[in-house]
Design a binder for these strands. Structure first.
Lengths: 227, 227
DNA sequence: CCCATACTTCGATCGTAACCGAAGTATGTG
DNA sequence: CACATACTTCGGTTACGATCGAAGTATGGG
């Protein structure tokens, strides 16, 4: 009788307190790293690592590698529903015990990440570009639309020379503090370079924080709002 | 540390292969005994007993004692939904590995149970009485309606003398083969006595089977159909 | 009252999985 | 390149729970 139904395995994954803590943390919809999930569950990194391997094997979570981090998210709504049907609680009720990202307010607001603009400002810009269909997402890929190309040319960014490079023009980059995507790729790098050129932002000497000038902040806000 | 969320416990109950087999068997909606569930899971009665105690404690199953049997059912639709969300299969797909009740066709069709009419015929009658609102169910209790009283008086059953007794007039009795209720209580007993008097059925000498006469079967079918 | 059936409780065995320390791999930083 | 960070793999300990045999309780039938 060695045949064990698949749903028994799924249940056994949820049945461990450490893994359950991790899953609950992920119900918030945020992407969290292995280390953060370890702290959530109150176990060491080694233990968390083996748990996360099992959760992946059971296809309850998805993995996204980015640099030396591994960002985990729930594999889909069906996982949330299964959990909810076992608990009866809503997505909003979940409270994270840890807060992702840096404590420094300036760093959370705007900072450099792989040479592109990250933090609250970076994700707000990305949201705006998507909403206005200047960027289109499909299957985790991001592509520049015709109107998007016009938008960046308006900022005097040379798209042709960027397209010539081998690395992709647009990339979703998962934001450290926000855990939602901001604009990466060569275009993301070019954008940061351009707004530095324009004097809108300056890099901090000691940290990765970005400091907006008074007029730079205003102009950037208009950029996000769409004039 | 020591605080383990309730849904983790629920998941751990489903996560054991033996208990999962039992739960799957119960998704059919039938009430099954401890022994039958033990056979379903392929474990001994002792093991099944401890599993069922845990399932009760976790409020995944309900217990109903009847004689020396313990009939288990799923605690409610929420359990079915939780299971379904983990498997994605419908109630109809479930196939029992065992078949409850006797193998003898005659016994399955009609037999005596605590001196009332049981088997397929018994449950069909009960269904009909409920459907025509001659009986009303509430909270596991069964009560005779005014029209129901008229129905049984039409069969020349003396309800007044039955009501005088201490034991309840109407009871749901869980049917051995059908695993759905048939009519028990003093009224169930009186009804069987009456249709024996009328010559509709005769008891088998060797078993508990009941044999309908040709005309008795016709008249009883009319009784169920409502003339 | 005795026997059979249905189920429970106890006690012992055994396997598995959670856990962490230590060492290893991969990736970014100066 | 050295060094720090993020994560994985390995090995050994430990605790828990699934299982069954044996003995105990409850119910029904003759």
């Amino acid at each position: 009788m060695g045949k064990e139904p698949q749903f028994v395995f799924a249940a056994s994954l949820i049945a461990d307190p450490s893994r359950a803590s991790m899953l609950l943390a992920l119900v918030s919809g945020k992407a969290l790293t292995a280390g953060e999930l370890a702290r959530e569950a109150g176990v060491t990194l080694q233990t968390a690592s083996s748990h996360l391997a099992k959760l992946q094997q059971g296809e309850l979570v998805c993995l996204r590698k980015q640099g030396r981090h591994k960002y985990f998210t729930l594999a889909g709504d069906h996982v949330v529903h299964s959990l909810a049907s076992l608990i009866g609680l809503a997505r909003d009720d979940i409270q994270l015990r840890i807060r992702p990202g840096p404590n420094d307010v300036a760093l959370r607001y705007a900072r450099v990440c792989y040479n592109h603009l990250a933090g609250e400002v970076g994700t707000r810009l990305f949201d705006s570009l998507i909403l206005r269909k200047l960027l289109n997402r499909s299957d985790g890929m991001v592509n520049l639309s015709a109107s998007g190309a016009a938008f960046f040319r308006g900022l005097e960014i040379d798209l042709d020379s960027l397209s010539a490079k081998r690395s992709p023009l647009c990339r979703e980059c998962l934001d450290w503090s926000e855990r939602r995507p901001h604009l990466g790729g060569t275009l993301g790098r070019a954008l940061l370079g351009r707004i530095e050129e324009l004097g809108w932002v300056k890099r901090d000497n000691a940290s990765r924080a970005l400091h907006f000038s008074h007029s730079g902040a205003r102009l950037f806000a208009e950029l996000i709002a769409g004039h």
